[in-house]
Design a protein around this nucleic acid. Structure first.
Lengths: 159, 159
DNA sequence: AGACAATAGTTGTTTAGACGACTACTATAG
DNA sequence: CTATAGTAGTCGTCTAAACAACTATTGTCT
């Protein structure tokens, strides 16, 4: 997070900082493209992630907190996120009979339909984001990213 | 963004997607550590980034929009961000005489003092984030991240 | 069986990101 | 010189992240 007034003189406090800030910046630039795409469908990336999780689980419903653990980024307000998806008819919710604390969530046919429509645009998005890298670079990057986050992942994580 | 109900069966739609989601996930995990640190100082990473930009420019003040262009992540509400920093006495603002549309921002002695206090904790943070990587891995990762974001950077960008 | 701890989800509230409209000012064209 | 376009920052407003308190339910212990 060091920005010099003289831009010829970019300097980081440490290499570790350089790594982290590069990561932040790179993600931020790519995220912008994603947001642009999802915006035209009135979706956020978190909502899309939820729908994909439910799609993968279909036809089985998923408990609310289990969705949370599977999300890429934590969602402290999962209840209202699901409220909003529910209001659009993209997900359905029902309280479990086995454990009445638990709410089971499933994707609706309307939700599946939306994902179907988004399939190609999302595929194109990712290509526009990182398609310029060679396959070797992509592989190496994935490996390094995985190595980077590994100590920071929960032990029972899905990543 | 594909999460399988059967976690043994992680599958991405494409390698490009895998890259992007790895990036998102990795950043998110590391960001969590950063937020934890800054929280105890009642700062956000964006605010810290602003302070660092101003520190680097000191004693010269920086026009508001120039701060924006130098931030790692865009700040659509820079005005109010600076309001909040100003209320804490960390930055000062004055309208430029040369061009009265422009507000010049500078870091206060109090702001510099805060950055001084944060220097060691921030250094330790970055080490805890990525210190487990070898130097070669860190170098490679930086190179790949730079390559990844390059087509997505503004042409007059600072990155 | 009852008491208490743990769990799942919900709700109240605050905060900051984000968009777009607005005000004031400067630059440019005729 | 005047009118208009462009620029810088501010303000109104909406949305979702985020924390913490709360309610209801289940699990555990005695």
């Amino acid at each position: 997070m060091s920005e010099e007034s003289d831009e010829k003189k970019r300097k980081f406090d440490s290499q570790e900082q350089e790594v982290y800030l590069s990561l932040w910046r790179t993600y931020d630039r790519l995220k912008g493209l994603e947001e642009e795409l999802f915006q035209s469908w009135e979706l956020t990336s978190q909502q899309y992630n939820v729908l994909r999780i439910l799609q993968a689980a279909a036809p089985r419903p998923v408990p609310t907190l289990q969705i949370s653990t599977r999300l890429i980024s934590r969602a402290p307000d999962i209840t209202r996120m699901l409220d909003r998806l529910g209001e659009r008819g993209l997900v359905g919710r029902v309280r479990s009979q086995e454990d009445r604390r638990t709410v089971l969530v499933e994707i609706t046919p309307q939700g599946l339909e939306l994902l179907e429509k988004l399939q190609e645009p999302v595929k194109s998005l990712h290509i526009s984001q990182v398609g310029h890298l060679s396959q070797a670079d992509r592989t190496a990057l994935c490996r390094l990213l995985q190595k980077t986050r590994k100590p920071h992942e929960p032990s029972d994580g899905h990543w």
